[in-house]
Amino acid sequence: MQRKPLFWLQLAFTLSVCVFLVVPVVLSALAGLTVNYQTGLSSGLTFRWVIEVWSGYRDTIFRSIGISLACLAVTLVLGIPAAYALAKKQNGFTRALEELLVMPVAVPGLATALALIVMYGGAGGFRTSWLFILVGHVLFTLPFMVRSVLAVLLAIDLKTLEEGAASLGAGFIQRFTHIVLPNCRAGIVAGSLMVVTLSMGEFNMTWLLHTPFTKTLPVGLADAYASLRLEIGSAYTLVFFVMIVPLLIAMQAVAQKPKQTFKTDEE
């Protein structure tokens, strides 16, 4: 098939962008596996740095995953009902509330963190626990959950669907679980992916909120790059990828799970 010159131009552009983005990733991964990055690959490949990161920073990785999943749980529990309430009552007040909810995203994370420390820094046990970081993350990620669920809820005729279910005898809990939740699933999934990735990578706020015992992955990564060898920092990134990518793929898979086809013979 005859291709137009423009096609080749576009292809070249796309490929060069890909190379521009992918090469640093490959180099970083290689750096984490190279004996001495200054000398280059000729110095040989090793797992030494990866092992060092694993033994030294393993806890930050698990803490980050733990915090991001806890953050997801909290935003699901708070965000879905909030979005539902906002969708049910659309007026000046709820719209203002919706805007207010987004403030923690607009305000620099450092400012939010400082406010949290000024306010609750004195609460010893809380200040030094990972829950302190969780609070910051929830503040920052909640609007992403609420917004994506709300967008879906506003796009469907929620009121009539609920009235339809009610006319068939469904009480509030049944309507919520049978009709509302399944029909805003796309929004919940999109919001969940946002929340987990944002929480996992959050640095700004966490940098102020953390204590030496509650370091998260991005904070540990910054430490490693700042104070240790480049190879260790790179190995850290590599470990991060290896841990996070399967998690995200798993979440996507859950999201794309074919619609449950309950036949009428269920129950």
Binding site: D157, T160, E163, G164, A165, H178, I179, N183, R185
Partner: peptide
């Protein structure tokens, strides 16, 4: 009571 709505209100899920 059985109700039929103008927009039908059938459940898309």
């Amino acid at each position: 009571v059985g109700m039929v709505f103008q927009s039908y209100a059938l459940f898309p899920n």
